[in-house]
């Protein structure tokens, strides 16, 4: 009889793991809390650094998982994984139990809620938006202010909810810097002539071709980078945003008026993941993400035998890393199920 593997989460990590497990001949069920699979990728218009359409990656997943024996169970929240004898029991929020020989957790991340950085006035000042809101504008093809006008000056605040002791997140979300660079270029593409300013603490351009895109943003698109963290945002009588920042390279405070300010929201352990961790007894780190058995050679294994991790539920990851991590999880699952004693 085929071994049954349950994958929790239908974003890129979960779809990748499920698709590869099917290829390897397992009976696979994929649980997704939303109505459809795809996760955050559904929201993203274009991907960095090559700015290919997010939909192309979704197409890849369609080919990978559709028409196969994969059972996709949408709109279902998994709350707990229990152990009984040699097998695992996956319980949904509705209290339905499913038995599995192995479980892959791919619950991903939640985008940081920018309202928590009160000083930036998200959901208070009309033209303060999040990076996700801007992607939605790109998908619609209209970058406009709340007054329906074309913005002439747009700012980006890096590290919103990342590297910030005040919101309890000491870690770097890793993808926001390059996302800001990508979105800054896209603003220039959508609204030529707009001036764009990125306010950063450090430019963390660690991925392949990130630094090159940063340079392109400066050289070809004239995006301005100002080193300093925005301390507060307010609204002028003309409904323009006023940002205060220390221009750390000039060594003086700087005040600027903008038509739109984009907050580069970081990544946090998902709420669903948190609940799953506490009810299942899975270890989490100081950063609240799932804590793998070993950060060097066991990044897919959990502290419970038979439960594995894939993707951004363990740390902030980009799509490329997520796919690699999910495939590595599958390798660990195969290895685990090979052992006939289980």
């Amino acid at each position: 009889m085929k071994k049954h593997v349950i994958v929790i989460g239908g974003g890129p990590a979960g779809m990748e793991a499920a698709g590869q497990l099917i290829k390897n001949g397992y009976d696979v069920s994929l649980f997704e809390k939303d109505k459809t699979t795809g996760g955050h990728l559904n929201e993203w218009f274009k991907l960095f650094p090559d700015r290919r359409a997010g939909s192309e990656v979704l197409d890849y997943y369609k080919n990978l998982i559709s028409g196969k024996d994969l059972k996709i169970i949408n709109s279902t929240v998994v709350e707990k994984v229990g152990q009984s004898g040699g097998s695992l029991t996956v319980s949904t929020k509705e209290g339905i139990e499913h038995t599995a020989d192995a479980v892959v957790i791919a619950t991903g991340f939640d985008l940081f809620k920018s309202t928590r950085k009160e000083e930036y006035g998200y959901e208070i000042y009309d033209n303060v938006i999040s990076s996700a809101d801007l992607e939605a504008m790109f998908r619609k093809g209209a970058v406009i202010t709340s007054e329906g006008k074309t913005p002439k000056n747009v700012g980006f605040v890096h590290c919103v909810g990342s590297r910030d002791e005040k919101v309890g997140n000491l870690y770097c979300s890793k993808l926001c810097c390059i996302t800001a660079v990508k979105q800054a270029i896209e603003i220039k593409e959508h609204v030529p002539g707009t001036k764009v300013y990125c306010f950063y603490m450090d430019m963390r351009m660690g991925g392949a071709y990130y630094e090159e895109l940063y340079r392109e943003a400066q050289e070809e698109w004239g995006v301005n980078f100002i080193r300093g963290k925005v301390s507060e945002v307010s609204e002028s009588i003309n409904n323009r945003l006023i940002v205060k920042v220390e221009d750390t390279l000039a060594g003086r405070p700087l005040k600027m008026e903008l038509d739109m300010l984009v907050l580069m929201a970081g990544m946090e352990m998902s709420e669903a993941g948190k609940k799953l961790a506490s009810l299942t007894g899975l270890k989490t780190g100081d950063n609240r993400f799932f804590s793998p058995a070993d950060h060097h050679y066991g990044s897919n294994r959990s502290n419970i035998s038979g439960i594995f991790y894939a993707g951004a539920c363990t740390m902030p990851m980009n799509i490329t890393e997520t796919i690699s991590h999910a495939r590595a999880a599958v390798a660990d699952v195969i290895d685990y199920l090979k052992d006939s004693k289980r």
Partner: peptide
């Protein structure tokens, strides 16, 4: 300005 945003913080 959206007053609801302030009310949420209040």
């Amino acid at each position: 300005m959206k007053i609801e945003g302030k009310r949420a913080i209040w």
